[in-house]
Amino acid sequence: MSEDVNEPWEYCLYIPNDLRAVTISRRTLRLILAMHGLTCLADTAELLATELISNAVRHTKGPAALRVRWSAGVLRIGAWDADPEPPQPPVPPERVADAEEGRGLGLVRACADLWGWQPLARGGNRGKVVWCELVSA
């Protein structure tokens, strides 16, 4: 099966609030990237997805979701959770080694080409998405 790497696609994996879901999300992401011929992004994407999904599971009480989208050479990884509160600001790079918490988003900020978050309130769905992007070289 020959897949066009330029063709856009999107996946969403809904997960329970369970730390085991972090591993499931990471492995699912690696499989998605392999199936689309994007293994060159897999290591960094896995790291970023792990941080985003870990935060969603650890810091909220409801379900979560991993969203992965490829379009125009950009991989967007997002973690949705039902809590509308913004994520804690990332720890500055010079303080990551000493920080008790907040290292995850600091790592996302350091490794991603772009990152951010947005609240959601569409069709009765509430919560937020914390996302990051990797640009394919």
Rank of each mutant, 00 (worst) to 15 (best):
residue 62 G to Y: 09
residue 100 E to S: 04
residue 134 L to W: 05
residue 84 P to V: 03
residue 110 A to G: 11
residue 122 R to M: 12
residue 114 L to I: 01
residue 30 R to N: 09
residue 86 P to Y: 03
residue 87 P to V: 01
residue 17 N to K: 10
residue 10 E to D: 14
residue 105 L to V: 03
residue 134 L to K: 08
residue 125 N to R: 15
residue 39 T to W: 09
residue 102 G to Q: 10
residue 106 G to M: 04
residue 53 I to V: 14
residue 85 E to Q: 09
residue 13 L to P: 09
residue 75 L to Y: 04
residue 130 V to D: 00
residue 108 V to F: 07
residue 98 D to R: 13
residue 20 R to Y: 06
residue 24 I to R: 14
residue 73 G to C: 07
residue 80 W to N: 08
residue 121 A to C: 07
residue 1 M to G: 08
residue 109 R to C: 05
residue 5 V to Q: 14
residue 53 I to A: 02
residue 122 R to I: 12
residue 26 R to T: 12
residue 43 D to A: 12
residue 66 L to W: 07
residue 103 R to M: 10
residue 42 A to H: 05
residue 21 A to V: 02
residue 119 P to Q: 06
residue 25 S to A: 15
residue 31 L to W: 02
residue 127 G to L: 13
residue 118 Q to S: 13
residue 97 A to P: 06
residue 119 P to A: 11
residue 51 E to K: 05
residue 94 E to K: 00
residue 3 E to T: 06
residue 75 L to I: 08
residue 68 V to K: 06
residue 6 N to V: 01
residue 80 W to D: 02
residue 85 E to P: 04
residue 71 S to T: 11
residue 69 R to F: 05
residue 41 L to S: 03
residue 13 L to G: 06
residue 105 L to E: 00
residue 9 W to L: 11
residue 39 T to L: 12
residue 20 R to A: 12
residue 27 R to N: 15
residue 28 T to H: 08
residue 14 Y to T: 04
residue 120 L to A: 10
residue 41 L to D: 06
residue 50 T to M: 09
residue 41 L to M: 11
residue 9 W to Q: 10
residue 124 G to F: 10
residue 103 R to L: 05
residue 71 S to G: 04
residue 133 E to M: 02
residue 24 I to P: 06
residue 97 A to K: 12
residue 37 G to I: 01
residue 116 G to N: 07
residue 124 G to C: 14
residue 15 I to A: 10
residue 74 V to F: 02
residue 31 L to A: 10
residue 47 L to A: 10
residue 57 V to H: 07
residue 117 W to T: 11
residue 128 K to P: 02
residue 104 G to D: 03
residue 99 A to C: 13
residue 129 V to G: 07
residue 110 A to L: 14
residue 133 E to A: 02
residue 93 P to N: 08
residue 97 A to W: 09
residue 87 P to Y: 01
residue 34 A to Q: 10
residue 5 V to G: 03
residue 65 A to F: 05
residue 106 G to E: 06
residue 83 D to G: 09
residue 5 V to D: 04
residue 52 L to F: 03
residue 112 A to R: 01
residue 83 D to C: 11
residue 93 P to V: 12
residue 96 V to F: 05
residue 27 R to W: 09
residue 119 P to C: 02
residue 53 I to K: 06
residue 95 R to Y: 11
residue 50 T to S: 10
residue 11 Y to A: 11
residue 67 R to Q: 15
residue 43 D to M: 07
residue 60 T to A: 11
residue 110 A to D: 13
residue 102 G to K: 05
residue 93 P to E: 05
residue 58 R to P: 01
residue 21 A to W: 01
residue 8 P to S: 12
residue 103 R to N: 05
residue 116 G to T: 04
residue 97 A to R: 14
residue 101 E to D: 06
residue 118 Q to M: 07
residue 23 T to V: 15
residue 122 R to H: 09
residue 54 S to Y: 09
residue 44 T to I: 12
residue 123 G to M: 12
residue 32 I to A: 04
residue 11 Y to C: 13
residue 23 T to N: 15
residue 130 V to G: 00
residue 131 W to I: 01
residue 36 H to N: 12
residue 102 G to I: 02
residue 26 R to A: 11
residue 76 R to T: 15
residue 11 Y to Q: 14
residue 39 T to P: 07
residue 66 L to E: 07
residue 10 E to I: 03
residue 9 W to T: 12
residue 29 L to H: 08
residue 103 R to Q: 12
residue 55 N to I: 00
residue 81 D to A: 05
residue 124 G to S: 09
residue 18 D to W: 01
residue 38 L to W: 02
residue 137 A to C: 09
residue 39 T to Q: 13
residue 34 A to F: 05
